[in-house]
Design a protein around this nucleic acid. Sequence first.
RNA 1: GCCAACGUAGCUCAAUCGGCAGAGCAAUGCUUUUGUAAAGCAUAGGUUAUGGGUUCAAGUCCCAUCGUUGGCUCCA
Length: 608
Amino acid sequence: MSEQNIPYEQSELYRLRHSAAHVMAEAVKELFPEAKLAIGPPIEDGFYYDFDLGKDENGKARTFTPEDLEKIELRFKELLKQNAKFEQYTLTVEQALVHFADQPYKLELIRDLAAGKVDEMGNPTTEPAQEVGIYQHRQFIDLCRGPHVGYTSQVRANAVKILRASGAYWRGDEKNPQLQRIYGTAWPNKVELDDYLKRLEEARNRDHRRLGKQLGLFHISQLVGSGLPLWLPNGAILREELERFLRQAQLDRGYLPVITPHIGKLDLYITSGHYPYYKDSQYTPIDVDGEQFMLKPMNCPHHIEIYKSESRSYRDLPLRLAEFGTVYRYEQSGELTGLTRVRGFTVDDSHLFVTPEQLEAEFIGVVSLIQHVFNTMGFHDFRARLGTNDPESDKYAGTPEMWAQGIKAIRQAADKVGMNYTLEVGEAAFYGPKLDFIFRDVLKREWQLGTVQVDFLLPQRFDLEYTGEDGQKHRPVMIHRAPFGSMERFVGILIEHFNGAFPLWLAPVQVMMVPITDRHNEYARQVAQELRAAGLRVQVDESDDRMNKKIRNAQLQKIPYMLVVGDKEAEAHGVAVRTRTGEDRGTVAVAAFKAQALILTTGKSMEL
RNA sequence: GCCAACGUAGCUCAAUCGGCAGAGCAAUGCUUUUGUAAAGCAUAGGUUAUGGGUUCAAGUCCCAUCGUUGGCUCCA
């Protein structure tokens, strides 16, 4: 029977993994009797369990060594095979507090349940609990609402694997103690486990960092600095194509280009509120003749100053200022990853200054532009998230009215275009709610790419105004938006999406000429020149490699077309077309190849 | 920033218990003139991330720093 339509939380696989987590914890408890248990839920593709192993003799937190993990895995598998039944029962809160007296994390969970605050995953509970759910197998007793499989042996010992250990803060808060987390995976059988491990291996092969090196797209130099990628020629060509595409789409939609500098006075960011708010993740200000300058962490204040450079009338609005603006943020060192999380990056930024009446239509216009961008890239696998403020938190500026108004505008616009989204409290920008477009990399990590944000706050902070039809001063609303998000991150995801085999219009080298012997080099150069004149990116492989090797090299570079030329082709003014998909199309006239290639590039086709 | 693992030639990796730093690919030179995924031979390439320490002897053991990777936290 197919489980495809059952939510994961109710699936057999979920029970299996939840049960695996318990048995693994049992193994840990055997090998480390002093270990304190935290939580151990199933997650996508597996499960984890968090432990506090106490301190070593130097007062440092005890951690799992790779040898510990081996022992745990061995014992884990033995315990699965030594069949035991999972028994479920409930204890009153009082009984549970006694039973878990030496398990401080469990006590905290029980007390929170009893107080009706939050459950073990931090989700609010509806009412105070009188009793708590317990699952027991053998002597291992855990606070748990299940569900589990019936017997431990239903989790196949040859279909589980311990993957890694890492630190993880108790309840995800860095102010709390750091626990030792063990990640594992569990599948119904060995075949599915092996499939999963193979998928992981394949994912590593399409990792943008690996492909970026292989295809000469970008390089990160220690001497330049962490998180400051250098775009190599192939990467720069790709990025410029993307920028050209979006620039044109924006011009078509009435955006106006602007260009602003990379630094700005500290006061600018104090006014905007960015500096106080993000102080810790900004590069230290530069002192110039006693004045403080920031590397810009955001483009909005600069664009706002452009808005303010002249008096504005309602006739000027909506004013859509766009720039590929490079910003610098001092991200925590542990966060940096290839192109997807960097310290210097370029936002395809735009700020729309609109009247309140125009807000919805402009928001819809932005969403449709983003849809156009994603459709062109063939991106369909993403989710949209409406990030709102958390009223409990003090990190959001502005009035409740502003927030309500912004959220309402986004909801109405999204509903009108039929966009599905999830609402997530506490995911807003400090100045306003936003609709984010979230993608996953090959390792299933989520990244925000496109974003649209509604902002009533900065217009107020900078005292923006326009003269209305009524001759009175009014305050505009701002929309911040970026379809790609960051060029770096977008290209990182793009590389993985296409596994480095970019559509023709984006391919850094579109055509590789493959002369069969060096007496064909001259003809290959002629054809290359002819194709370049038509705007195609063509290289000639004049190395003294044999033809087979030239083809192999072009294949490895994932170049869309290899044009083999020998005596036959030179005579007929033709080329023998081979695609990177391995297809041999035989000899065609140069003019015919050129015409066909141009149709595909101008149409931004996914086909070859 | 926190926890852990890792850092050897441009790239991918080897070097047993602490005992002469190696291979393939790439590069360079020569030979070969080739019809759809790797021709042959040769040459060159290293302060083993950096700085200290232990030792007769350190790529290998210890300490610190930097960086990378996987998590955690953060992400305007």
